[in-house]
Amino acid sequence: MRLIAHRGFADEAPENTVPAVEHAVAAGADVVEVDVRRCASGEVVVHHDETVDRVTDGSGPVGAHTFDGLQALDVLDSGAGVPSLAQVLDAIPPEVAVNVELKETGVAADVAALLADHEGEAMVSSFDQQALREMREADAAVPTAFLTDRFRDRPVATARDLGCSYVHPHYRLCLLSRLVERAHDAGIEVNVWTIRHAAIARLLALRGVDGVTSDRSGILD
């Protein structure tokens, strides 16, 4: 299984920052996962929440801050600011893949343009089906992944209908059903989230899961 560094191994580094990405690369991640939104000045920035309140010394929506303002914030007392996607991609070497999660619609075209200049393997994921459709329209060559934590979303069928190469379910869905087998039968790989215990990772390996997302670098040791 491939090890996917959730927000740059968020238990070990200030999530979704350049230092976190650099840590994930050094710690042996196969894939680095980051989240993106658009800020007030138009740049695509790397941040999970709709607001900056939880992880910075600032407040308010990401979309109300300029990029310079986001750079000046302090993420989790690390001294690092909120980076742009361009800065994060520059920190990921070609041998490490990147998973860009779209947290909102309207950013896919800019993400596609940035990934076109990135040398390494990339995929784009989202819970939002419209965001994934926008990504397919922007650049159909970029592999996409449907994120879900609900059976009622019909994970495999929806991923297939959206033209996704991957489905990214919550790991429990793989333990409670034949999701992995059905996905593989459809030619779709399965990367699960978010694993905190090595024993669960071992069970998922037995199920045939292709990749596991974790906040910790040693989950597959």
Rank of each mutant, 00 (worst) to 15 (best):
H23E: 03
A10M: 12
E22C: 10
A20P: 07
A27V: 08
H47W: 10
F9W: 12
P19A: 10
A10G: 10
R37H: 15
T17G: 00
D30C: 02
G42E: 07
V36C: 14
G28V: 03
A26S: 13
V45A: 11
D49L: 14
E33N: 05
V32P: 14
D49C: 14
H47A: 10
D11L: 13
V44K: 00
V36I: 11
E22T: 14
V25M: 10
N16P: 05
R38M: 07
A26C: 02
V52G: 09
D11R: 09
P14M: 06
A10Q: 15
H23P: 13
V36S: 13
A27K: 06
D49Q: 12
A13K: 10
R38S: 08
D53I: 06
E12Q: 15
V44F: 00
R54L: 04
A20L: 05
R37I: 11
A24F: 06
A10T: 06
E22S: 05
C39V: 00
A20K: 15
V45K: 13
S41Q: 12
H47C: 11
P19E: 10
E22M: 14
A13P: 07
G42K: 06
R37Q: 13
N16V: 07
V34P: 12
V45G: 06
D11N: 14
D49Y: 08
S41V: 05
D35A: 15
V21G: 01
N16Y: 08
D35K: 08
E43Q: 12
V34L: 05
H23A: 02
H47D: 03
V45E: 14
V36T: 01
A27D: 02
D35G: 08
P14K: 10
D30K: 12
